[in-house]
Design a binder for these strands. Structure first.
Length: 420
RNA sequence: GUGGGUGUAGCUCAGUUGGUUAGAGUGCCGGGUUGUGGCCCCGGAGGACGAGGGUUCAAGUCCCUUCACUCACCCCA
């Protein structure tokens, strides 16, 4: 029989890793709620149209990375490649703007993109996604960035660099875009094939190219910050000023462009050195026109996404993954085995993690198992103890053993465990 | 989609110019005298050497094909 394996780029989160995931999620909920963000859970599937409209028809994500299929009724559905579109859809669909003019949401979950997997890049990956609707003030930009940086520090990320830029708005960005195209006109043949393609698809991306020759050409190109309209320029100045007030260290990166079409004004990215080529740990920005573009009213928004797997990759190692058991019950012989089965489950019902071995193995091997399960205590008894109505309770750390009466045993054990 | 690297035990890897029944460490199971874990010692189970084809008296080792994994490009979290 041929073995069935997981799909390429889609991984299991194994029991030894799950506690780390839960730990991070608990920090997310704790930190974000202090900033007034509430959790929303959105579906992993949406109508394909939603992503085409929000992310942009000509982006790589939409053009070649989405998992799209036809439903039985012929409707085109897509496994979400990112969360913002779904959150905005839900925001509009449930009229959240009429309940609260400023809505702060976050969501955590899997995203799907059909790319070639490599370090820090998977076909199913997880994001922590934050969206703030209804506030166009630069304080919002600074607040969201501050929260992100704070969150990463709480989780234990040591080395991170924050880069910010302004991408302009629908008035000033096209002007800049055209300026870049004009600037590159004539030197197309000196650019790499990728950049030649970018001129027509997404000219700002040329800034991102890693090839030396392209870099030297683009070095003399116009800078976005010189093209910002008065409003965008002022907004960006304010954002920087508030970040300074909050003592958030940042790097101004005029070459940073985000890959999704919908970003306006502030764009930001967190990078970490320990991640390999996929060094972007989190990214986000403002998207003031997007809510209305998706059918809502003119409501500004700003948000970011953190790559969960990448976050784990640059986290310091922790002890939280160790599996622990309160008590292991080592029963010797059929009589003890029978009593143990009831006792184990009685303790579990009381919320104590209890374990036993259903095979009547040697005490030595049962002790080994108790050790493997990291049990704090081991209860030892066989025929002798049953006859004497006294069982042995061993503290695995101190090796002290005390005798406990067989009567009222669950209560006695519960009390001892509570006292610790 | 395009390159490079790697596929031998559950995991991490040895395996000499092709040459007997393919090894180690770790993990798992058991034992080291009566019913007591971690350390140490001993033993055991576990592999058609990724798959298919070819060269050869002989292939884990050489050649071809294919698949998988991985890193990078691209793209992005």
């Amino acid at each position: 029989m041929e073995k069935i394996t997981a799909i390429k780029g889609i991984k299991d989160i194994l029991p030894e890793d799950a506690p780390t995931w839960n730990y991070i999620e608990s920090i997310v909920r704790q930190v974000f709620s202090a900033f007034g963000f509430r959790e929303i859970r959105v579906p992993i599937m949406e109508k394909t149209e939603l992503f085409k409209r929000s992310i942009g028809e000509t982006t790589d994500i939409v053009e070649k990375e989405m998992y799209t299929f036809r439903d039985r009724d012929e409707e085109l559905l897509t496994l979400r490649p990112e969360a913002t579109a779904s959150v905005i859809r839900a925001y509009i669909e449930h009229n959240m703007m009429s309940t609260d003019p400023i809505t702060k949401l976050f969501t955590i979950g899997p995203m799907f993109r059909r790319e070639r997997p490599q370090k820090g890049r998977f076909r199913q990956f997880h994001q922590i996604d934050v969206e703030l609707f209804g506030d166009e003030k630069p304080q919002s930009d600074a607040e969201v960035i501050f929260m992100l940086v704070h969150f990463l520090k709480v989780v234990g990320i040591k080395e991170l660099s924050l880069e910010i830029n302004s991408l302009g708005c629908k008035i000033c960005r096209p002007v800049f875009s055209q300026a870049i195209v004009n600037f590159l006109k004539g030197s197309e043949k000196d650019l790499c094939p990728d950049c030649q393609r970018r001129i027509s698809t997404n000219p700002l991306r040329v800034f991102d190219c890693k090839i030396e020759s392209c870099n030297s050409i683009i070095a003399g190109a116009p800078k976005i910050l010189d093209y910002l309209c008065a409003e965008c320029a002022e907004h960006f100045e304010q954002v920087k000023s508030y970040l300074n007030d909050l003592k958030v260290a940042y790097l101004l990166n005029p070459k940073m462009v985000r890959g999704l079409d919908y970003y306006t004004k502030t764009a930001f990215e967190i990078k970490s050195g320990s991640l390999g080529a996929q060094n972007s740990l989190a990214g986000g920005g403002r998207y003031d026109g997007l809510v209305s573009f998706l059918g809502g009213s003119e409501i500004p928004g700003i948000g970011f996404a953190v790559g969960f797997e990448r976050l784990i990759a640059c986290m310091p190692p922790t002890e939280i993954n160790k599996f622990k058991t309160d008590i292991f019950i080592a029963a010797l012989g059929p009589r003890a085995q029978k009593i143990s089965f009831g006792l184990t489950n009685e303790l579990r019902r009381a919320g104590i993690s209890a374990a036993m071995d259903y095979t009547d193995k040697s005490l030595k091997s049962q002790m080994k198992r108790a050790d493997k399960l990291n049990s704090s205590f081991t209860l030892i008894f066989g025929d002798k103890e049953i006859d004497e109505k006294l069982v042995e309770l061993r503290d695995m750390k101190t090796k002290n053993q005390q005798a406990l009466s067989l009567d009222n045993l669950p209560e006695a054990i519960i009390n001892i465990l509570k006292e610790r």
